[in-house]
């Protein structure tokens, strides 16, 4: 049961319906944990997990005569985007060009043949626990390999632009110049639906790190405490990514982000 999209000529935007589609979800998952070192004073454990998901539309009888005809393709995941094939900046006009596949001089969904999987190719995480005497250190890193849509793409748009984009526009010939002409705004609006703004949005993120020190009992007993601990926790501390959008965790456009960097510290005392 999904909200099946309807063209507005029916009077509605969507209808709740069962679809005749068969979708297969399979995947490969690994989890490894190892104790790398264990001595009296020092221990080091590592946990690792990896998932390679696979989602595929196996069959959909009558998809060509449905409102999903230009959204899903049999044999591909549900997370695809259908895009124009970007063909570079026209050296004569200086405008972006995309492929008019059927040569009918008009660009529409029939020309959107570049199938781009926007789903995650694989993802996972590594977590390490280290302890040395009364010190302990834990950290978790996760990683995802995926493509993303660069929502802030505005090279050549008629309007305000980020200053970094201006510098890039000046220095590189890869982008269309800003122009008031109708052709330029048409070319720009087409390129937004091409595979040009599709970029690598893979990332490795230091998700959490915590550091703690347990005070020794020899120190506490004289001052009447039973247990004391001092700790420092951090979340979303560092991200390695080539993605220039706001957050690689939100790779499909949208101007929001998932995790703020958070650092907390504290002392825990028990009497």
């Amino acid at each position: 049961m999904v909200g099946f999209p309807l063209p507005a000529i029916t009077g509605f935007n969507s209808v709740q319906a069962n679809l005749p589609a068969t979708v297969e979800n399979k995947g490969f998952e690994v989890e490894v944990s190892s104790t790398n070192l264990r001595t009296k004073t020092f221990s080091w454990e590592t946990f690792f997990n990896l998932t390679i998901p696979k989602n595929e539309l196996i069959s959909y009888p009558g998809i060509e005569q449905s409102s999903y005809a230009n959204v899903y393709k049999v044999g591909h995941p549900l997370s695809i985007s259908l895009l124009y094939q970007y063909e570079g900046v026209d050296p004569e006009t200086g405008l972006y060009t995309v492929a008019d596949v059927n040569d009918d001089t008009s660009l529409d969904y029939n020309d959107r043949i570049a199938i781009q999987n926007m789903g995650r190719q694989f993802y996972g995480g590594i977590s390490n626990n280290l302890s040395y005497k009364k010190f302990s250190l834990q950290f978790l890193m996760d990683f995802t390999k995926q493509k993303g849509y660069f929502d802030l793409f505005e090279y050549g748009d008629l309007g305000n632009q980020a200053s970094v984009d201006f510098i890039e526009l000046e220095e590189s010939g890869d982008y269309q110049r800003i122009s008031q002409s109708y052709e330029a705004s048409e070319a720009f609006s087409n390129v937004l639906f091409s595979n040009l703004p599709i970029v690598d949005a893979s990332y490795v993120r230091l998700r959490s790190l915590s550091f703690a020190y347990d005070f020794p009992s020899s120190f506490m007993v004289p001052i009447g405490l039973s247990d004391a601990k001092i700790f420092l926790n951090g979340q979303n501390l560092y991200t390695i990514t080539k993605f220039k959008g706001l957050d690689p965790e939100e790779p499909n456009g949208g101007r929001y982000f998932a995790g703020l960097r958070t650092i907390t510290g504290g002392i825990q005392i028990q009497f």
Binding site: P5, L6, P7, A8, I9, E64, Q65, S66, S67, A69, N70, V71, S106, D108, Y109
Partner: peptide, 17 residues
Amino acid sequence: PENERLKNPNLTQNEGY
């Protein structure tokens, strides 16, 4: 409108677009 044509594969476009 393009979005209407996306949802209704039988809807053709006007000349010149």
